[in-house]
Design a protein around this nucleic acid. Structure first.
Length: 558
RNA sequence: UGGGGCGUGGCCAAGCGGCAAGGCGCGGGACUUUGGAUCCCGUAUUCGGAGGUUCGAAUCCUCCCGCCCCAACCA
């Protein structure tokens, strides 16, 4: 298959790098990094950052580091580190030997802090958290200087050493940068650099009881690694002057920070707090529930890394806040899977169809194309017999206008098999159709209508040869495009985000399908074998995304 | 009332003084043994608004309006 080289859309970050390369600013180097905090699962929003960081490095022949900004031991854990590593790798990116942790730089950061103290640019503050907040002022009023702001260098050095030594309790002292309490930029009002936290860190254990704030650690970590382009989201634009200040005071390598608008998608939420609530309240089955916007969830849902990468490229990189329609994400998946997924027949809600003129006991192996988009995928045999199952939706009595499927007296093609004509219906006492009867045309073997006009083609399975399966029909977790706009986001939850169908019957070729394998169930959508709950004896499929359904549109319009 | 950003069709997004790319979606048609895919065609006299500069402005200037972020010892 040929990958049509879709031209990458230009964006302002690429333009900036091009300028740097032209001026020789970083000697033509492009070294980026993806810097997650290991305190949660990565979601679709992170995918764009990953794609930009790694993508740009790849495009310009540079490299991208994976660095964990693990500066807050009370919120971080190895579990998250592992899951993030696994996810980034799954997405298809490689950082080579460049796996780093901000915690690896704690000693250097400490030395630099001492350097700032010596230069009179940092001080130990005894104000409580509440007092610091009061002294900071407000958005419109300047702050006030802490009474401890002018301690001597010697005293600060001594106090800071004792903070490190563990002589003080949590929260009793901080190290602060001495910048400008009247700055319009609140980040510059003597930001805290270190806080006391007598907590074990997932990597450094109990070696430290003071931990650097993200703002103090981040820029210097970038500098240590020789990062040239430090790409981040818009909310850090205000922090850039602070990072610049630190770097300039220290006189070390100074990366260029560039900010872009984070990605959000319609019909989902990405708030960590809300996602956690979904999991804890059992509204979803876990962080990898196929309805979750986490990359683990999308993966289990059947999304391919290729589709997600394509999506992140198509949404573009800019500075305007955006909420991309989830339809684009789904389109990317369909486009990818249409090309790659083999087709199979599966009947979700079986309705018995008896071919009255087909010999009892006879079985034919009908040849079916595995993937019309890819001849190399070959063909397979599907057993045909007298008693079949068809989809309940594919029979209607009476038939509505423009309905091309089966109804009394009507003809339809059974895909890859025969043309059949409906001759009768059996109903139970409640009037529900229990069996459809029909006759087949022996001359139409393979589905050849030989010039006849047969508009409808439906899928089927042989009742006795089919195998059972559970199929989970997933839909958007939220019915509303912007769940966060609701007064209470819970009310935006869709009641039909999951429908479990336990009665599905599959063509026998699906038996023993590997976990994670993906198929198109003809006329229905793309499905994958659930990685967690499926087993060879109890197959479980997840619907990744449905096929475009023109008939549903026609019917809903009346 | 402070600081920082952003406003191009339903949703994204190119454009950087020469007269509105593209994608998704939507509507219509062709084709079709998936009402799938594919292929055509259509979808902003107009770029948040008002002035101004210019032969000419989405692009430059001025003012106004709207939206987002910032007052964690979170990241």
């Amino acid at each position: 298959m040929s990958e049509e080289p879709r031209e990458k859309p230009s964006n302002f970050i690429r333009d900036i790098i091009l300028e740097h390369n032209a001026s020789g600013r970083f000697g033509g180097n492009v070294i980026t990094r993806f810097p997650p905090e290991p305190n949660g699962y990565l979601h679709i929003g992170h995918a764009q950052a990953i794609s930009i960081d790694f993508g740009l490095a790849r495009e310009f022949g540079g490299r991208c580091h994976l660095r964990f900004d693990d500066t807050n031991p009370t919120k971080e854990s190895q579990e998250y580190v592992d899951s993030i590593i696994d996810t980034v790798r799954w997405l298809g990116y490689d950082w080579g030997q460049h796996l780093y942790y901000a915690s690896d730089y704690f000693e250097q950061l400490y030395a630099w802090a001492v350097q700032l103290i010596k230069a009179g640019n940092a001080y130990v503050d005894d104000l409580t958290q509440e007092q610091i907040s009061e002294y900071r002022g407000t958005l419109t009023e300047p702050g006030r200087e802490s009474p401890y702001r002018n301690r001597s260098v010697e005293e600060n050095l001594d106090l800071f050493a004792r903070m490190r030594a563990g002589e003080y309790d949590d929260g009793t002292k901080t190290l602060r940068a001495k910048i400008d309490m009247a700055s319009g930029n609140i980040n510059l009002r003597d930001p805290v650099m270190y806080r006391i936290r007598k907590a074990s860190h997932h990597r450094t254990g109990d070696a430290w009881c003071i931990y650097p704030m993200y703002d103090w650690a981040h820029g210097q970590s970038d500098s240590i690694e020789g990062i040239t382009h430090s790409i981040c989201t818009l909310e850090y634009e205000d922090h850039r002057p602070l990072y610049d200040w630190y770097l300039d005071q220290l006189g070390v390598h100074h990366p260029q920070q560039i900010e872009f608008a984070r990605l959000s998608v319609s019909h989902i939420i990405t708030s960590k707090r809300k996602l956690l609530e979904l999991v804890q309240q059992g509204i979803v089955s876990g962080w990898d529930d196929p309805r979750m916007p986490t990359l683990a969830g999308l993966r289990r849902r059947g999304y391919t890394p290729e589709a997600i990468r394509d999506f992140t490229e198509r949404v573009g990189t800019a500075k305007a806040a955006k909420v991309v329609d989830i339809a684009l994400l789904e389109h990317c998946l369909r486009e990818d899977l249409n090309r790659r997924a083999e087709r199979r027949m599966a009947v979700l809600r079986p309705l018995k169809l008896v071919i009255e003129n087909y010999p009892e006991g006879q079985v034919e192996a009908m040849e079916a194309v595995n993937n019309p988009e890819d001849p190399a995928a070959g063909t397979r045999k599907v057993p045909f017999s007298r008693v079949l199952y068809i989809e309940q939706d594919d029979f209607r009595d009476p038939a509505p206008p423009k309905y091309f499927r089966l109804s009394p007296g009507a003809e339809v093609r059974l895909r890859y098999a025969y043309i059949v004509k409906c001759t009768g219906v059996e109903r139970d006492s409640a009037g529900q159709v229990t069996t459809v009867r029909g006759t087949y045309d022996p001359d139409s073997r393979g589905g050849d209508s030989r010039g006849r006009r047969v508009k409808g083609t439906i899928h089927w399975v042989s009742a006795s040869h089919s195998i059972p399966a559970e199929v989970r029909l997933y839909d958007h977790l939220f019915a509303a495009p912007r769940p966060d706009d609701a007064d209470d986001w819970h009310t935006a939850l869709s009641p039909s985000s999951l429908e479990v169908v336990r009665s599905a019957r599959l063509e026998p070729a699906l038996a023993g399908s590997d976990r994670g394998s993906r198929f198109q169930f003809e006329r229905q959508g793309y499905f994958c074998v659930d990685e967690r709950d499926s087993s060879p004896s109890q197959l479980v499929f997840n619907r990744s995304v449905g096929l475009r359904d023109t008939w549903a549109k026609i019917e809903s319009k009346g």
